[in-house]
């Protein structure tokens, strides 16, 4: 893990410092003279040799110091933790949509392959994969906020800080927009995994034993088809938490994805490096939890 993290922070650092542009020119805006830009960069220490900056950065990271955002003048970890709440709630609520639409749709489609229901669900999955999430988001916003006035159009107020769970209503439309698009992939994958398993002999045996079709599908077929589905869901979740940039922008949600994009556009190096590190850790943790789930789903899998 430490090696992975070291690679991530090194690559991020080198890539970001190789890109032209600097934070002072963005902060000072189009009216600043080159001298004023150079002067501000100097006061931030950005004129030091790149290797000196790199050494200092890596040494600080391994001491748990992520630095301060150039733009916001706040510790990077504070900014990330503020944003993480939105992203995690958005990820979890979208996951509900992904699982309920994607997994159940895939299972239903696999029960009667090539039937009208299967074709309809495939069409929905195709639409989900094809519709841009920003378009879906704007349509949902226009309908439920602009016309019906039943859900807020954008923004998110902290649930943890205010203790008000009702604030989650701000995430209903974004999670539908984000979840529906991702559910399509999961539905396709669930369908093919289930079809593969439903043709196995032990499924026929289960049916021959007189088990109900529901029991055969849920207990025998789905459990064995669940491993590839779990893999896809876990990485979809990680992606929805860390890279829901479009959805976050459409609904003005202060999440991790938009933070990294804004960081890149503003050349806020400490923020970009901090977010990339946190996202790398997130992927490692989710990978680990997914591996543990395999053991639960298939007792034959054991880790020493």
């Amino acid at each position: 893990m430490i090696v992975s993290i070291f690679i991530v922070i090194s690559v991020t650092f080198i890539l970001m410092h190789s890109v032209p542009g600097n934070p002072a020119s963005v902060m000072l805006g189009p009216n600043a003279t080159p001298e004023q830009v150079a002067s501000l960069n100097e006061s931030w220490g950005l004129n030091r040799p790149i290797w000196t900056q790199y050494y200092k950065y890596v040494a600080n990271v391994f001491q748990g110091k992520f630095g301060k955002s150039i733009y916001y003048q706040k510790p990077v970890l504070n900014i990330i933790s503020q944003r993480a709440e939105t992203s995690i709630f958005l990820g979890l609520m979208s996951l509900i949509v992904v699982v309920s639409v994607g997994v159940s749709g895939g299972i239903i489609a696999s029960i009667k392959p090539n039937s009208w229901l299967d074709n309809l669900l495939l069409l929905v999955a195709l639409a989900g994969a094809s519709i841009p999430s920003f378009w879906l988001g704007l349509m949902l916003m226009n309908l439920f906020s602009g016309q019906l006035h039943i859900l807020p159009s954008s923004g998110f107020t902290s649930v943890l800080k205010t203790g008000n769970i009702v604030n989650l209503k701000n995430l209903i439309l974004p999670s539908i927009a984000l979840g529906f698009v991702n559910a399509a992939l999961v539905a396709r994958s669930a369908r093919s995994s289930m079809l593969d398993v439903l043709n196995r002999e032990y499924v026929n045996t289960a049916r021959a034993k007189g088990l109900t079709e529901m029991r055969v599908i849920i207990k025998h077929a789905f459990r064995n088809a669940a491993i590839p589905i779990t893999t896809i869901i876990s990485f979809t979740f990680a992606k929805m938490v860390s890279a829901a940039v479009v959805t976050e922008n459409v609904f003005a949600l202060p999440g991790i994805g938009s933070l990294v994009v804004q960081g890149i556009l503003k050349r806020d190096y400490p923020v970009i490096q901090g977010v990339m590190l946190v996202v790398a850790i997130l992927y490692v943790v989710i990978n680990f939890l997914t591996d543990l789930t395999y053991g639960y789903l298939d007792p034959r899998i054991r880790y020493s």
Binding site: H149, S154, N249, A252
Partner: peptide
């Protein structure tokens, strides 16, 4: 002052009273 980068969201937000 909220940062809302998407123009459609800004207009919908004013329409909805947000």
């Amino acid at each position: 002052f909220s940062m809302v980068s998407e123009a459609g969201a800004r207009v919908s937000g004013v329409k909805a009273g947000n």
